[in-house]
C-alpha cells in the first residue's frame, strides 16, 4: 500500500461528500456529506503522517482535533436543524433561500 492509495481513497470520500452536499435536499444528509469530507481530510493527515512526517504525533493530534471539532459541529448543526424543523416543518435546503438575489 502506497501513499497514493490512501490519498485516492480520501479523494473518493471527499468527492462522495461533495456529491452529497451538492445534490441532497435534506439537511441531515448534507451533514453526512460534511462528515465524509472531514474524514477524507483526516485520512490525508494520517497518511502523510505515516509516510512523510518527521514527527508522527502531529498528524494524530490534528486528526483528534478534527474529530473533536466534528463533534462540536454536529452538536450545533443538529440543534439548528431542530430549530429549523420546528419553525418550518421542513429541512429542505431548496426551500431555505432567503439569501437569493
Amino acid at each position: 500500500m502506497s501513499l497514493s492509495a490512501f490519498l485516492l481513497v480520501s479523494l473518493v470520500l471527499f468527492s462522495a461528500g461533495l456529491v452529497a452536499i451538492m445534490s441532497r435536499r435534506n439537511l441531515v444528509t448534507i451533514l453526512v456529506g460534511i462528515e465524509l469530507m472531514l474524514n477524507a481530510a483526516s485520512i490525508n493527515f494520517m497518511a502523510f503522517n505515516y509516510y512523510t512526517a518527521v514527527d508522527p504525533v502531529v498528524g494524530q493530534i490534528i486528526v483528534l482535533v478534527i474529530i473533536g471539532l466534528a463533534a462540536a459541529e454536529v452538536a450545533i448543526f443538529l440543534s439548528i436543524l431542530m430549530v429549523l424543523y420546528r419553525a418550518r416543518h421542513d429541512v429542505d435546503v431548496e426551500e431555505i433561500r432567503e439569501i437569493r438575489g
Binding site: M1, S42, M46, A47, Q60, I67, L78
Partner: peptide, 29 residues
C-alpha cells in the same frame, strides 16, 4: 476509516474514531 487508521499505525485514533464518530455522531444523527 477506523481500519485505515489502524493500518496507519494509530490504534488510539482509530478507537477515538469509533467511539466518537460511530458511537457519538452517527447515533446523534
Amino acid at each position: 476509516v477506523a481500519g485505515i487508521y489502524l493500518y496507519l499505525g494509530s490504534p488510539f485514533v482509530a478507537a477515538m474514531q469509533i467511539l466518537i464518530y460511530i458511537g457519538g455522531i452517527s447515533v446523534a444523527m
